[in-house]
């Protein structure tokens, strides 16, 4: 399982890092993003919706995303 440490980064950087890491994942894999920018709480779920990927969990500045396609 991959973890991206985006703490201290401001949006859109955490979302950019997430998108850039995605091609290396296999379908079904999950990736964890650590991000403490308040905007990430809206923007990571929004990215998952726009990209049709699954937001598995979002709590305590930690976001788990599963690659669906």
């Amino acid at each position: 399982m991959t973890t991206l440490d985006c703490r201290g980064m401001l949006c859109p950087l955490p979302v950019i890092r997430l998108a850039q890491a995605f091609p290396d994942l296999a379908v079904g894999d999950t990736i964890t993003v650590l991000a403490d920018d308040p905007a990430a709480a809206t923007d990571i779920p929004a990215w998952c919706r726009m990209r049709s990927q699954e937001l598995v969990s979002a709590a305590d500045n930690q976001y788990v995303v599963r690659k669906l396609a």
């Binding site: 949006c11 859109p12 979302v15 905007a39 709480a41 809206t42 923007d43 779920p45 929004a46 990215w47 919706r49 726009m50």
Partner: peptide, 9 residues
């Protein structure tokens, strides 16, 4: 934007 759940950046 946050309440709507849309992209904020």
């Amino acid at each position: 934007l946050a309440a709507m759940g849309v992209l904020t950046h």
